[in-house]
């Protein structure tokens, strides 16, 4: 074999040996331990720290909120619908890279600086699950936020930890009362409001059927106390106990006063009548968009006009209604009252 061939082979063998040596030095000892990969990688990946901590972690400090939640609709294990703390509050044990959960006034880490991430904008947060959109299954509770609460924060009426536990007017609405017992106490009501609370032609009282229970109860209480001034109602209400009021309110609320079809055409009509601002709470057809507001169904034009004048004049007072009523001139008031005055019970 000529010398140059021998040397060529030596060079090639040398390169091969160097390659084998480097390979033996470089390859991780745990490679092939469980298969064709670095065995140590498995434990390394498993070592990462979890960021979402689970409800028990939150409960350890926020027992009261946890208790409210655990008795509310957001904890419904029977339907597997469990909205855990960290769904709305963000991961308890880690960074919040997108700042998706932070209240502007709280710190970025919890509980490192003992500040809880509280969602600031509940309309933005709650609608993530509860806005009505195409594709969402019917079982999911959904609202059209434009028609539900006039853009007000959900937390104004709902306790987010137990959303069917209401605050304010809604809390009263949810309180109760016995409609059957209430019916027996309505003898004094029927002459003016009709036996089922539907104010037929010629009756002087407004329609009570299907009216918001909390509104009815609050109205009776206001008449009794004199906060709302009406000589007939003062006489009737002064003999009622608190439970009477609840029962009567429950009875009339349970009676039917169905609305005509609502929808886009109705909304356009409301707008035309200058009642667009009313519609966001009272609905375009008089059916309220939320349980906090009274129904306008079946009310006479005269009654509505009187009510608006009372708000404007200060005989009745409500944070929203007083302002709206004052903003209307006589013609506007008449027009709006006429519009809703046409919404009779069906």
């Amino acid at each position: 074999m000529p010398r140059h061939i021998r040397r060529l082979l030596l060079v090639l063998i040398g390169l091969g040996l160097v390659a084998v040596a480097v390979r033996n030095l470089v390859v991780d000892r745990s490679f092939y331990e469980y298969g064709h990969y670095r065995g140590n990688a498995v434990a390394e990946i498993a070592r990462d720290k979890p960021k979402f901590q689970g409800t028990a972690y939150c409960q350890s400090c926020h027992a009261a909120e946890y208790d409210t939640w655990a008795h509310g609709l957001h904890y419904s294990p029977d339907t597997a619908r469990i909205v855990k703390c960290e769904v709305c509050h963000g991961p308890g044990g880690g960074r919040d890279p997108g700042q998706n959960y932070l209240h502007a006034a709280t710190g970025p880490v919890h509980p490192g600086n003992l500040k809880l991430a509280v969602p600031a904008d509940t309309t933005a947060l709650c609608t993530v699950c509860h806005e009505q959109i195409v594709g969402r299954p019917a079982e999911q509770r959904q609202i059209v936020s434009g028609e539900h609460a006039g853009g007000q924060q959900c937390s104004l009426c709902h306790d987010a930890h137990a959303p069917l536990r209401f605050k304010g007017a809604l809390a009263a609405a949810a309180a109760g009362g016995n409609p059957a017992a209430g019916q027996r106490k309505t003898a004094a009501c029927a002459p003016c409001h009709g036996p089922t609370g539907v104010s037929a032609a010629g009756l002087i009282g407004p329609t009570l059927a299907g009216q918001n229970r909390a509104y009815l109860a609050a109205a009776l209480a206001a008449y009794r106390s004199g906060a709302r001034k009406n000589p007939i109602m003062l006489g009737v209400a002064s003999v009622l106990s608190n439970s009477d009021i609840e029962d009567i309110a429950a009875f009339f609320a349970s009676q039917k006063c169905a609305a005509g079809p609502g929808g886009a055409a109705q909304l356009a009509a409301a707008r035309a009548a200058g009642a667009a601002m009313c519609a966001s709470c009272h609905g375009a057809n008089g059916v309220p968009t939320g349980a906090a507001w009274p129904s306008l169904l079946g009310q006479s034009t005269d009654y509505l006009q009187g009510a608006l004048r009372s708000y404007a004049g200060g005989d009745r007072s409500h944070v929203v209604m007083s302002a709206i009523a004052k903003s209307l001139d006589d013609a506007g008031t008449a027009k709006v009252a006429a519009y809703y005055g046409g919404a009779a019970c069906k």
Binding site: P2, R3, H4, R7, L8, V11
Partner: peptide, 8 residues
């Protein structure tokens, strides 16, 4: 170097 030291 390329010749690997052989000029054969």
């Amino acid at each position: 170097l390329l010749s690997l030291g052989s000029y054969d």
